[in-house]
Amino acid sequence: MTLGASLITVFYCATIFYVVYLILKYVYDRGHILGTIVLMIGFYVLSGLMVYYQLYGKFGLEIINNKYVIVHHAFNWAKYAQTFLVMHSNYSVMAVGYYYYKSKLRESSDKLEAVNARLAAESSMKTFQYTTLSAQVHPHMMANIFSHLKNKVDPYDIELGKQLSELYRLMKFYMEAHHVEGATHILLADEVTALKQYLSIQEKVEPNPFYIKLSCSGNLMRFSIAPTVMQTLAGNLFKHADLWDKNHPAKIDILAGHAGYRITVKNKKRSGPQMMPSHDVGLRNVRIRMEYLFGTDFSMEENQDDDHYELTLCVQRYK
Rank of each mutant, 00 (worst) to 15 (best):
G97Y: 01
Q54P: 00
Y168K: 09
D157R: 05
D305L: 05
I16P: 07
S299L: 06
G257C: 07
L46T: 02
L167Q: 06
M175C: 05
A177M: 07
S271K: 09
Q304F: 13
S92P: 03
L119M: 11
S47K: 07
M50L: 14
L55I: 08
L133R: 02
Y168H: 11
K79I: 13
F59H: 06
Y100D: 00
A194Y: 05
H279K: 14
Q136W: 02
E159D: 07
Q274S: 10
K104Y: 01
A5R: 11
K204A: 10
M221L: 07
K104H: 03
N219Y: 00
G257R: 08
S123F: 04
S124R: 13
C13A: 15
T232K: 08
N303F: 10
V93K: 03
K213D: 11
L243T: 06
G272E: 02
M276T: 10
L105I: 00
T312K: 13
Y130E: 11
M221W: 00
L85K: 04
Y18L: 14
I158R: 11
L188P: 09
Y26T: 08
H73S: 13
G161M: 06
R30V: 03
H308T: 09
S103Q: 11
I158V: 11
S92K: 05
D29C: 07
S109I: 03
I37C: 12
T36N: 03
P273M: 02
P209V: 05
S224W: 03
Y80D: 05
T83F: 14
Q136Y: 03
L7G: 12
N151T: 10
H178C: 03
L313M: 15
I41W: 06
E302G: 00
S271Q: 11
P249G: 06
K102A: 00
N116T: 01
E206R: 13
C13L: 14
L49D: 00
E113R: 15
M221H: 09
M221N: 12
V205T: 03
A78D: 03
A177P: 06
F173I: 02
P277S: 10
Y174L: 03
M275L: 13
V180L: 07
Y26G: 01
Y198M: 13
S278L: 11
A14L: 15
G31T: 05
I158W: 00
V86M: 13
Q274F: 09
K213P: 00
Y44T: 05
M1V: 12
V205K: 12
H88W: 01
D110Q: 12
V96E: 01
D245N: 15
K172G: 06
N65E: 08
V286N: 07
D110G: 02
I64R: 14
N144M: 14
L85R: 02
Y198P: 08
H308N: 07
F43H: 01
N267T: 04
L255E: 14
G161F: 01
R284E: 15
K266P: 00
I288K: 07
L160S: 14
Y80R: 06
